[in-house]
Design a protein around this nucleic acid. Structure first.
Length: 242
DNA sequence: AACGTACCCTGCCGGC
DNA sequence: TGCCGGCAGGGTACGT
C-alpha cells in the first residue's frame, strides 16, 4: 500500500522498537530474499526514511535497505506468511509481502548512497517542486517520478492535485507561481493527513478522489472521473480542477 | 526527453 | 459455487 505517509509510519514504529536492538537471528523462508548471516550480532543504531525507502543503520557501517513496493509491511506479531524475520534482543520483526515485489537487503554505505542519490527532494515539511518545472510531462505523471520529488505515489498524486485544483493532464512546467504554491500546499496537506490517519485511511475511506470514480466531489458534487495516465489510474474532479 | 510495453508476483473482486 | 479476466498503493528494462 505504501506511499510516503505509510512508509513514514512504518519507519517510526521500527525506530521506536529497534533503536539499539541487537540482531540475534534471521529467518529467511523466501529464497528470493537474501540477508547475509554476518548481520547477526550487529546492533541497529537508527531507522530512518528517504522517499519510500526505509534504512536501518548498523553498527558496522552497513545498512539494511527496505522498500515495501506494493504489498510489503513490517509486523511485530508473527503473521501466517512472511518473507523474512529479524529476531533481536528487544523484539522480532517480520517482513510480510504477498506480492513479493518488496526489497529487504544489506548494503554498504557506498551502495546506499548510490541508491538514494537519484531521489528528488522530500515533500515534507514543505519540499520544493523545482523539479516539476523542468519537465513537459503531465503533472500527475511527473509527481510519480521519484527523481523529481520523492515519496509521492499514485494515490497522493491524485489527492494533491485535487486539493490544488489542478487538472492532472496539465503540463508540469506550465504551472504558474500561484498554481505551484497551491500544489505544494496540496501535497503537504494530503501527505500530512495520510500520516495522521495511518493505514486506516484505506478502511476509513478518507480519500477525496482516489478510487471514487462516479462518486460526488466533496467540494462541488460533480462526479469524480477516472482516466489512465502512464498505465495507471488517475482520479479527479472535472469541475474543480483546471 | 517522453512514451509504450513487458515484466516482476499474488490476492481480490465482479461477471458469467 | 467455481472459474476467469482484470486490476492493484511500486519500480525496472527495453524499444521507438
Amino acid at each position: 500500500m505504501p506511499e510516503l505517509p505509510e512508509v513514514e509510519i512504518q519507519t517510526r514504529q521500527l525506530a521506536r522498537r529497534l533503536r539499539g536492538a541487537k540482531i540475534l537471528a534471521l529467518e529467511l523462508p523466501d529464497a528470493k530474499l537474501r540477508l547475509p548471516l554476518s548481520i547477526v550480532g550487529r546492533t541497529i543504531q537508527l531507522v530512518w526514511r528517504r522517499g519510500k525507502f526505509i534504512i536501518f543503520d548498523l553498527d558496522d557501517g552497513r545498512h539494511l535497505l527496505a522498500h515495501l513496493r506494493m504489498t510489503g509491511w513490517f509486523e511485530f506479531d508473527r503473521p501466517q506468511h512472511y518473507r523474512a524475520a529479524i529476531l533481536t534482543d528487544k523484539v522480532a520483526v517480520y517482513f510480510e509481502d504477498s506480492r513479493r515485489f518488496g526489497i529487504l537487503t544489506a548494503v554498504s554505505a557506498r551502495k546506499l548512497m548510490a541508491v538514494l542519490k537519484p531521489l528528488g527532494p522530500e515533500p515534507l515539511p514543505d519540499g520544493d517542486l523545482d523539479g516539476l518545472s523542468k519537465t513537459t510531462r503531465a503533472v500527475k505523471v511527473a509527481l510519480l517520478d521519484q527523481r523529481l520529488v520523492a515519496g509521492i505515489g499514485n494515490i497522493y498524486a491524485s489527492e494533491s492535485l485535487w486539493r490544488a485544483g489542478i487538472h492532472p493532464r496539465r503540463q508540469a512546467n506550465r504551472l504558474d507561481a500561484a498554481e505551484q504554491r497551491r500544489l505544494r500546499r496540496g501535497i503537504v496537506t494530503a501527505l500530512r493527513k495520510g500520516i495522521t490517519y495511518g493505514p486506516r485511511i484505506f478502511e476509513l475511506q478518507r480519500f477525496a478522489v482516489y478510487d471514487r470514480a462516479g462518486d460526488p466531489c466533496r467540494r462541488c458534487g460533480t462526479r469524480i472521473r477516472r482516466i489512465v495516465q502512464a498505465q495507471r489510474s488517475t482520479f479527479f474532479c472535472p469541475v474543480c480542477q483546471h
